[in-house]
């Protein structure tokens, strides 16, 4: 994916929709285009957060550690942005992300991302809107996770 395509892809992301074209191009120019093979981790739970990812092609799985083994709790696919929450909160990664099949992603440097979305008022409102959406979504997924754990416990309890 060359520079021009990157710009187009980024333009389609709601958070960047209102961003000034030259700033968008700067983000595109400073981003890295990375390829991951099936099963490879983009990053691990607990890693320091230093970038935001956008899936160009393929699917990734969101995995979390559960008593020493990894379980998949969700997946993301084409044109989805992830990893920005950890950048906003300046916290380590809350989950491991693994490629499911061959995956191509854009990686935007965390510093660059934070600067662009906070330094320009046109993006700030958009960011707030998206963040609140994410929070709502994550609450739902947490509930799902809890339900699953409950199910598993029930199954195990039934087995004994």
């Amino acid at each position: 994916m060359d520079f021009g395509d990157t710009v187009k892809v980024l333009r389609a992301i709601p958070m960047f929709a209102k961003l000034d074209p030259s700033k968008l191009k700067l983000v595109a120019f400073a981003s890295a285009h990375l390829t991951f093979d099936d099963g490879e981790a983009l990053f691990f739970e607990g890693d320091p957060s230093d970038g935001v990812y956008l899936i160009d092609e393929g699917t990734v799985n969101i995995c979390v550690d559960s008593n020493g083994s990894e379980i998949t709790v969700g997946s993301l696919t084409n044109r989805e942005l992830f990893g920005e929450m950890a950048i906003f909160r300046n916290e380590p990664r809350s989950a491991t992300i693994r490629a499911s099949g061959s995956v191509k992603v854009l990686r935007i440097d965390g510093d660059m991302f934070l600067r662009v979305v906070t330094e320009y008022p046109e993006t700030a409102l958009e960011v707030m809107r998206i963040l609140s959406e994410k929070i709502a979504k994550s609450m739902v997924s947490e509930r799902t996770l809890q339900d699953r754990v409950q199910d598993l416990e029930n199954q195990l309890g039934g087995g004994i």
Binding site: D20, S22, K25, L26, F29, A30, M112
Partner: peptide
């Protein structure tokens, strides 16, 4: 020019990119 001319001259992106 398009990417950088609006940035203040002491912006760290100059050095980095």
């Amino acid at each position: 020019l398009e990417l950088f001319q609006d940035l203040p001259p002491d912006h760290e992106f100059f050095d980095r990119y």
